[in-house]
Amino acid sequence: MTIQQLESLLNINLPSKEQTILLDDTQITVKRDDSIHSIISGNKWRKVKFQLLDALENNTKHIISFGGGFSNHLHALGYYCRQLNIKLTAIVRGDYSQNLSPMLQDLIAWKSDIRYVNKLTYQARTDSYLNTLQTEFPQALIIPEGGSSHFALQGVGELISELSQEYDYIIAPVASGGTLAGLIQEVSKQSLKTKVLGIGVLKGQGYLEDLVNDLLPKEHASSNWQIMHDFHFGGYAKKNAELIQYCDKFYQQHKIEIEPIYSGKLFYAIELLIQNTYFPKSSRILALHTGGLQGTR
């Protein structure tokens, strides 16, 4: 099976469109990865597509991955696995068993196995707990939280070749680092002058940069990127009335749905940067809408 056949099987609509809007009287382009599928969320397909293809080619019957109770990554993965007849074990941070989120209700409907773990166990998902899972399920494919692995970089990087022009800035939200790393690597591969900007959606100065650097191969390390840390509104999934009102106003003006966890913080940041004349005049700016709308239910 090719990646194109897999995308056809799952009804993935790529390439996603580029849509021009005005923010504070400045023209920017939105890469609408939120629109590639009615259920699958934006960049969640790009980050796991090659891992899924590898799983199918190796006849993998079981996938394990990690996330919170509203995780876009687990939601998308649960859907893929149901469609491809692969068992999913979702390791969920916190016990939602008596108060299921809409995301977890979907996973149950898709026959996923859910394991609730405490915060301490979840924090060990990259070392001791990971080893425990690998011992318990030696035949399973374990995908990192958010799908951010070295596999993710190739899938995200394909986005660059879909673009209609070379941009001066590509801007994306950052949480687990895979999307930004994929963009940086492909810009480096193609020797583009594009600057890649990340908008940190959680408190993590230094931490987020380390996540990105750990994913980047040395030959594609670059200095032409930056993560901005002034727009997280207090931390991951933190929001206030101003941000919620901004998301509502953005939809009214542009008819593009955004939410306060990822895309709302992204566009809020871009608009404020424009107002503060961060971008040189006539800059070509691309904002990557990574989806995530289901997480607000």
Rank of each mutant, 00 (worst) to 15 (best):
L107K: 12
K281F: 11
Q105K: 15
I114F: 12
T2L: 09
N276L: 08
I86Y: 03
D214L: 11
A287E: 13
L133Q: 04
E145H: 08
S282A: 14
T135M: 00
G234V: 05
L23M: 14
L153I: 03
E166C: 10
N11E: 13
R115N: 10
K218F: 10
F279A: 07
K265P: 06
Q83M: 14
L153W: 10
F70W: 15
L74G: 04
D168L: 09
I274Y: 09
H254C: 02
V117I: 14
K31S: 04
D214P: 02
N131L: 07
P280T: 09
G204N: 11
I244R: 12
R115S: 05
A76P: 00
K119P: 00
F151D: 02
R284Y: 05
L288V: 15
L192V: 05
D248Y: 00
G206K: 08
I12H: 05
L100V: 05
D95G: 02
I274P: 02
A241T: 15
G295Y: 05
V30H: 08
D113Q: 14
K17F: 03
T296P: 00
A241Q: 15
P280H: 12
E219I: 10
G146D: 09
S283A: 12
G68P: 06
Y278L: 03
I63N: 03
S128T: 15
E136C: 01
H229I: 01
L216H: 08
T290L: 01
N11Q: 14
P260I: 06
L107S: 10
D113N: 14
I184G: 12
E145P: 05
I91Y: 11
D106I: 03
S35C: 13
G198N: 04
E209L: 07
E242V: 13
